[in-house]
Computed example of a mutant assay.
Amino acid sequence: MTPLQITLVQTSWQKVVPIKEKAAELFYGKLFEMDPSLKPMFKGDIVEQGRKLMAMINTVVMKLDQLGDIVPAVQDLGKRHVAYDVKDKDYDTVAGALLWTLGAGLGDAFTDEVEQAWTTA
């Protein structure tokens, strides 16, 4: 990622933080709409899952310029997702749902340049 892309992701994320609960709700709604077969993977409280998701995204976004600090945690998260039977194709669906959510939450601020930065991230 370029420094500009990092800045675009971080500044656009700061606009999502105040609506993070709604963003999580939108995200999971879109995710399950895009692929209903994913819903059984989420056995717990989806609101709590949304809080965890938003916290993890926040951590990663804030550390984009210091990825070495978070690589072990992200690798651990990836290992846990293998145990949940997450497939490679599921990550594409998650990415699509996240980009859609960002677009819905940011509105006109979700420019092509911001979308590309998030896609790169």
Rank of each mutant, 00 (worst) to 15 (best):
S12I: 07
W13S: 12
Q14A: 13
K15C: 07
K15E: 14
K15N: 13
V16M: 11
P18Y: 03
P18H: 01
K20N: 13
E21F: 01
A24W: 03
E25A: 13
E25M: 06
L26K: 06
L26I: 12
F27P: 10
F27M: 13
K30N: 14
K30E: 08
L31V: 05
M34L: 15
M34Q: 14
D35F: 01
S37A: 11
S37D: 12
S37P: 03
L38Q: 12
M41F: 06
F42V: 02
K43D: 10
G44Q: 11
D45Y: 05
V47Q: 14
E48W: 04
G50C: 08
L53K: 12
M54R: 06
A55H: 08
A55G: 01
I57C: 02
I57G: 00
I57V: 02
T59I: 03
V60Y: 12
K63A: 07
D65H: 04
L67M: 11
D69A: 14
V71F: 13
A73M: 14
V74W: 08
D76F: 12
L77I: 06
G78V: 01
G78D: 08
K79D: 15
V82R: 14
V82L: 15
V82S: 06
A83P: 05
D85W: 09
D85K: 15
V86T: 14
V86F: 08
V86H: 13
D88R: 09
K89C: 11
V94T: 04
V94E: 05
